[in-house]
Design a protein around this nucleic acid. Structure first.
Length: 350
DNA sequence: TCTGGGGTCCTAGGACCC
DNA sequence: TCTGGGGTCCTAGGACCC
């Protein structure tokens, strides 16, 4: 089973502000009368009627819907609501896998002996979330994660879609290839140019042709187009990296602003690493110029540390050759990876 | 249209080791 | 003189997800 909370950020805001009900709500960057930088994080269904979508530039949303209610992202609040909902969902699952803040997979093969039983559980989950938080979700039930996820997306909001093994092909074949997890804008375009538009087209395509174009990923696409997915519902796995990045309100070449931003990013990342009890070895910096040209540079240290000074020194060295350009800078980022769990005692190697 | 922020995974090439 | 084969680690970029 896949459970997806409907327009989650916007729905939480709507719940907390009854005066917004019925109005278009757009959660994301500050629109600044159409001059704002950044994107729409989530919008409610009223806003969608105006053509507003997630990930759309906020300036475009402003043009489409100037009278909408624009709100900043209140991540702490959504996190609290999410935590409560996830603990409800967990109770219904043999195994549970949270995906992001607003989605989860539930392995329910033991708790439900049939698809009818699964559907009953889904209805119970939907009313539990409605009763406790006043929010709706869309649920998909299928023979595997792939099909369940596509099914939850099939009817929204407040949907419930059950796809049994015998109707899987019927369900999948007419859908756009983009519905398959891992096929985004670029891959969709490449597939379209090969004459492949629907999942049905993909399934009838020769595997060798897909292999030639996409390598082993092509074989995986072909398997998924048949509804084949062996992946397990996995409980939480440890993080692989911590990062922070910042896009300036206005592109800048001001040295002191750049320096203090790098410093702040490093301080934040180092404290995140420590707070979570990790040490890092690899430092990656990211820089994006005004023309959107983007570079990353990384360096792996011979030792693991959580010292913010080590991060700052390494990051400064990596940034150095990118700073004196005559181009202005749009974004700076810092990432720490190659993480190891900090142990109580570390052995000093001589 | 003018493009956030926090992540994961994959690929390809190169260095290096046995 | 013209160069194997297997493996690991590192780096840069890109696609994708929420």
């Amino acid at each position: 089973m896949h459970v997806d909370l409907d327009a989650f950020f916007a729905a939480v805001e709507e719940k907390n502000h009854p005066e917004y009900v019925g109005k278009p709500i757009i959660v994301g960057a500050d629109p600044k009368q159409g001059k704002g930088r950044g994107v729409v994080s989530t919008c409610n269904y009223v806003a969608r009627e105006f053509g507003v979508r997630s990930a759309m530039p906020i300036s475009r949303a402003w043009r489409l819907c100037p009278h909408g209610v624009y709100l900043p992202v209140n991540y702490e609040l959504y996190e609290q609501v999410s935590t409560r909902i996830m603990s409800i969902l967990r109770k219904y699952a043999d195994r549970f896998e949270q995906v992001g803040i607003d989605e989860a997979f539930l392995e329910i093969s033991q708790k439900a002996s049939s698809f009818e039983e699964a559907e009953r559980i889904a209805r119970e989950i939907k009313s539990a979330i409605r009763d406790s938080e006043g929010l709706t979700c869309s649920v998909g039930i299928g023979p595997n994660k792939l099909v369940a996820k596509i099914a939850s997306d099939y009817r929204k909001p407040d949907g419930l879609t059950v796809v049994r093994e015998d109707s899987m092909k019927h369900f999948l074949h007419p859908l756009s290839v983009e519905k398959i997890w891992g096929i985004g804008k670029k891959t969709k375009e490449r597939l379209n140019s090969m004459g492949i538009r629907t999942i049905g087209d993909l399934s009838s395509c020769d595997v060798a042709r897909l292999r030639k174009q996409f390598g082993s990923l092509g074989e995986e696409f072909h398997r998924m187009s048949q509804g084949i997915d062996e992946s397990d519902v996995l409980e939480e796995s440890p993080p692989k990296s911590f990062s922070r990045e910042h896009t300036f309100q206005e592109d800048t070449s001001d040295k002191s602003q750049i320096q203090s931003t790098i410093n702040d990013l490093c301080t934040d990342v180092a404290s995140q690493v420590s707070r979570n009890g990790f040490l890092f070895r690899t430092v990656t910096i990211k820089i994006r110029y005004e023309d959107f040209e983007t570079h990353t540079r990384s360096r792996t240290l011979p030792f693991a540390t959580s010292n913010p000074e080590s991060l700052k020194v390494t990051a400064a060295r990596l940034f150095d050759p990118f700073l004196p350009e005559n181009k202005r800078i749009r974004l700076l980022g810092v990432r720490a990876s190659s993480l190891t769990k900090k142990t109580k005692q570390r052995i000093l190697e001589i």
